[in-house]
């Protein structure tokens, strides 16, 4: 006679343990943003609050994603010394 209950219990236990692994972290697989929360942790996205009161760059407004990206990319060109020197 086969003892089914322990076998079923052990199988279920192993299946539960299979969850104790790593979850994917790469962008697109792990970066889930829901209602002000990244992966369960609260945080807003960087373009949502807008430039602070003492910020010089007023080219974008709060919530303007493309405007924020454009501002950051424009600013990053300041790190390109060939752009500046030529």
């Amino acid at each position: 006679m086969i003892h089914w209950k322990p076998l079923v219990g052990a199988t279920l236990g192993m299946m539960v343990l299979a969850g104790c692994g790593e979850s994917p972290q790469q962008l697109g697989q792990a970066t889930t943003y829901k209602q002000g929360k990244y992966q369960g942790k609260p945080d807003s996205r960087p373009y949502e609050s807008g430039p602070s009161s003492y910020s010089q760059d007023k080219s974008w407004q709060a919530g303007d994603k493309t405007g924020w990206e454009k501002a950051v990319k424009t600013r990053q060109q300041a790190q390109n010394e060939y752009n500046r020197a030529e």
């Binding site: 299979a18 104790c20 692994g21 790593e22």
Partner: peptide
């Protein structure tokens, strides 16, 4: 830690609990 100790250790501990219950 993540791929060996946690699953194997968990199985071992749960197994010990299960053996005790049985």
């Amino acid at each position: 830690r993540n791929n060996q100790i946690i699953p194997i250790g968990g199985a071992l501990f749960l197994g010990a609990v299960g053996i005790g219950l049985l």
